[in-house]
Every structure is written in structure tokens, then in C-alpha cells.
């Protein structure tokens, strides 16, 4: 763990150095600011309170749509994996939604439900649900029959079976869906904010774009990327490790 963090730090430092050199060589700091200029912009937005407010708003949207998508997507995926009839009936819809461009879903949600918060969250969730469903369908379809029979013979009942037999088998699929889900959701949330919300990181980026304020754009991008990385390292990976401790 420690050495992995060390390597990440070195790798990041090299990235910053390369960026700095290119920025200096290019010379136009308005188009490509140096790292200190980006930090200045970060400090300015942080002092005005805008940074934290907008990060918080965006994070709340990410959390809401992520939870919504994980819950509905898992339920749908497990249903599809367990029932062949359901898979035949609804499976093609999932493929359809999987291939629908994110922008189409966002625009339709705004057109049909208005430029409101729930439409924004729903648009993000709908984009993510098919991915989760496809992943969990795989998991549900590969559930062990041997273990299900064992649980039935020994009279585990539905609750014990779910907790000790089924969910542990699905855990790797939940983790995969959560990981790819987080990456996808936070990217789409910014687009949704840009198109139809009066606040959030996406909205701020649009404002900065209109002012050609590249330093602020980068400041927001890094701040938010940092938070998502922290969630991955601080929550998802430790949970995955705990869930995998039985493996040889």
C-alpha cells in the first residue's frame, strides 16, 4: 500500500513537471496556465466559497444518481440473470439504452420533465442503470447451483441465503459496477449541470468557458478528480479488500 502510494506520487509529480515545461514552452498562460496559476485560481474560488459550494452540490447529485442507479440497476440485473423470461423480454431494452447517447437521454429528460433537479438526477441515473444491470446480470447468472442446493437442504431460509450465499457471490460484480459507475456518473453529472442547472461544477465550468478562464476550469477539474480518487481509494478499495479476504 505504502509503496503504491509512493509510485502514484512519483507518477503525478512527473505529470506536473511535463505540464509545467510545456506551459512555459508554449508561453500563452491564458490558454495553458502553469501549475502555480491553477493553484492561484483554486485559492481564489475557495476563498469566495464558490468552490466548496459547487463541489458539494455536484457531489450530492453524484451520490443521489449513483445510489439510484446502483439500486435500480442491481435489482434489474439480478432479475434478468435469474429469470430467462425476463431476460428475453427486457434484455433488448437494456441493450438499447446501453447504446443510447448520454446527451439524448439528458435532453429528453429536460424536455419532458423540465429543467428541474429530479430530471437532472434521473437523467444521470438512466444513463448508468444499463451498465449496472448488465454487470449484475452476469453475476446473477453465474450464481452457484451447488451452494443454492446446500442452503435449501439445510433450511437456510430467504434471509440467511441472501446474506451468506447470494450477496457474497455478487460482491465482485457490485464492486465492478460501482467502480465503473462512479467514473461514468461524475462525468455525466457535469454535462447535465452544464445544460440545465444554475449551480454545480458543470455550471461553473461553463461560466469559465465563456470567459476563456482555463485556470479556473483546470482548478475545478483537479479538485473534483481528487475527490473522486479519494472515494475510490478510501471507500471502494478497502471495502473490496475486506470482501475478498477469504480468497487464497
Amino acid at each position: 500500500m505504502a509503496s503504491r502510494l509512493g509510485w502514484s506520487a512519483i507518477s503525478l509529480a512527473v505529470f506536473v513537471a511535463v505540464w509545467w515545461v510545456i506551459a512555459l514552452a508554449h508561453g500563452d498562460f491564458r490558454l495553458l496556465p502553469t501549475p502555480p496559476l491553477v493553484i492561484d485560481a483554486l485559492v481564489v474560488t475557495a476563498k469566495s466559497g464558490a468552490l466548496f459550494y459547487n463541489l458539494l452540490v455536484t457531489l450530492a447529485r453524484v451520490a443521489a444518481s449513483f445510489l439510484l442507479a446502483m439500486t435500480l440497476g442491481s435489482a434489474l440485473g439480478i432479475l434478468l440473470g435469474m429469470s430467462r423470461t425476463a431476460d428475453r423480454l427486457i434484455g433488448p431494452w437494456v441493450v438499447l439504452f446501453l447504446n443510447l447517447p448520454a446527451l439524448v437521454i439528458i435532453i429528453l429528460c429536460y424536455v419532458w420533465f423540465g429543467l428541474i433537479e429530479s430530471a437532472a438526477v434521473a437523467a444521470v441515473a438512466i444513463n448508468k442503470i444499463p451498465n449496472v444491470a448488465v454487470t449484475l446480470r452476469e453475476g446473477a447468472a453465474s450464481l452457484s447451483r451447488d451452494l443454492a442446493e446446500m442452503a435449501a437442504v439445510y433450511g437456510f431460509g430467504p434471509w440467511k441465503t441472501l446474506r451468506h450465499v447470494i450477496l457474497p457471490q455478487l460482491a465482485p460484480f457490485f464492486a465492478a459496477a460501482a467502480r465503473s459507475g462512479l467514473a461514468l456518473v461524475w462525468k455525466i453529472v457535469l454535462v447535465v449541470e452544464l445544460l440545465g442547472r444554475p449551480n454545480g461544477v458543470g455550471f461553473e465550468l461553463q461560466t469559465a468557458f465563456q470567459l476563456f478562464d482555463v485556470a479556473t476550469i483546470l482548478a475545478y477539474a483537479f479538485a473534483f478528480g481528487f475527490i473522486v480518487q479519494a472515494i475510490e481509494l478510501g471507500i471502494i478499495q478497502p471495502w473490496e479488500q475486506a470482501a475478498n479476504r477469504w480468497r487464497r
Binding site: 446446500m150 439445510y154 450465499v165 477469504w246
Partner: peptide, 20 residues
């Protein structure tokens, strides 16, 4: 039913497997 293969829950300890 002692199955032909052990059919233990790999993510539960020996004690949990027997106690469940």
C-alpha cells in the same frame, strides 16, 4: 446431506460454515 463435493461457503470460516 453430505454432498459428493464439500460445498462449503468459501467466504465464511469453518466455524460459520458449520454453525449456519
Amino acid at each position: 446431506y453430505v454432498f459428493q463435493s464439500p460445498r462449503l461457503l468459501p467466504w465464511r470460516t469453518v466455524l460459520q460454515n458449520v454453525a449456519l
